[in-house]
Nucleic acid binder design. Structure first.
Lengths: 224, 224
DNA sequence: GGAGAAGTGTGTCATAAGTCACATAACTTT
DNA sequence: AAAGTTATGTGACTTATGACACACTTCTCC
């Protein structure tokens, strides 16, 4: 499979591009480049102009932010097939976090200029993108309002389910970071996790959470 | 001033269209129609296709939602110069609330089909709209996360400031509705308002709040 | 003008979750 | 292996806010 075809598949997996026709997708993929990163190498940092969209071909990229005390908090891991920077490439705003390679990686790169040129030549695609952004706005405003009003156990269960979808039943994250994710104090996170451990829903290790009973966890996430 | 020129001014006032050039704006305004509504007349209801964007030329339109118990909650008032349905016109999704005329009104109407045709002819405008939608997404995710984590007094002060910007120092809203707005219980809203009344920040009347000291209120909203 | 509805003011209580404080456990570095 | 650092576990306390209950006031409509 050609590089371009591989990129097209990644794009197609992303909701933002899922609606595009095969021909449109192919013309778009033709604009991509690739870039190699050594382990630990910086891809971009907070404040850089958002001049490209990236897809991970192999390796791993960590999206992290430097906390005020100098420590770093990981916001997300991007593995093969993941796409990031979709919004930046559309509006060109500065990056709001840093991205570094967790291991030697190869990325697909779609430059903003190329993408905008494409949209100008294909206004029908631009309109599809507009519709998708609108959906995202609606979805966001529904979810955010709802989600932040949910009690902590629900928010926590949802986050764990989301992480499980990406990493399987062994989630590698500290309770501190989990707290940042769900907007709660570390201690509260710990107490809830302990309660679930006693119910055999999960097991805890230093820096790791082992999900034992996803059925119960998703039930809690649904807040029934 | 022609009808179209009047509509162009309204569009220009909205962040979504503020970046458009005068020529683009003029071509867009030429697509508008007008529509008259009698007092109490229904403009659209929840579930209707979002097939147009509206601007209020004169009168008042209430955006409201039917609660499950049959009572109605007003989500917003749109007065002369206000624009609503911008998102619906872009993505065509169904309306999520009802709109009825609070008094005899005249509206500018920009139909979705006309607007999409315009975007197809002017891809540069489509790209500007995309950038604006992206901004809105970023803004939303920043604000929502931050906003819901703020204590009640801050959320309340922010909402009052926003209402003051639209209606001046005499805000006509029930404490119940205010509670819905900020996601809090009516009683909690009342207690906070009482505290502010004692500090001479505002005065309370049935269905009305009179803002006396915007300086203090905005200070609270900034959460300093 | 009387009845009922809608809006407001307040007391009491329960509870979720934050904060602080400290103990313990697990990794790292030298 | 000792020392230091980071992560986790837990108790005690505080606080904001929701829930319920009820009195009181102001509107609306026959």
């Amino acid at each position: 499979m050609s590089k371009q075809a591989e990129f097209a598949v990644i794009l197609k997996m992303n909701p933002m591009f899922a609606d595009l026709g095969a021909d449109e997708l192919q013309r778009l993929s033709n604009l991509c480049h690739t870039q190699h990163l050594g382990s630990g190498e910086l891809l971009f940092q907070k404040g850089d102009p958002g001049d490209a969209l990236f897809g991970v071909r192999r390796g791993q990229v960590r999206i992290e932010t430097g906390a005020s005390d100098g420590s770093r908090l990981t916001l997300n891991f991007m593995g093969p097939g993941d796409l990031f920077g979709e919004v930046a490439v559309l509006d060109g705003q500065n990056r709001t976090a840093d991205a570094t390679a967790g291991e030697a990686s190869e990325l697909f790169v779609l430059r903003r200029d190329d993408f905008l040129g494409f949209l100008e030549r294909e206004p029908k695609v631009a309109i599809k993108i507009i519709a998708l952004l609108c959906q995202r706005i609606r979805w966001q405003s529904e979810r955010m309002e709802e989600s932040m009003l949910q009690p902590l156990p629900v928010r926590l269960a949802r986050r764990l389910c989301a992480l499980a979808a990406d990493f399987g039943s062994e989630v590698h994250i500290s309770q501190e970071q989990l707290g940042v994710f769900v907007g709660a104090a570390r201690e509260s996170v710990n107490r809830q996790l302990q309660a679930w451990r006693k119910e055999a829903i999960l097991d805890l290790q230093r820096g790791r959470i082992l999900l034992r009973n996803m059925t119960k966890l998703t039930a809690i996430a649904r807040n029934e």
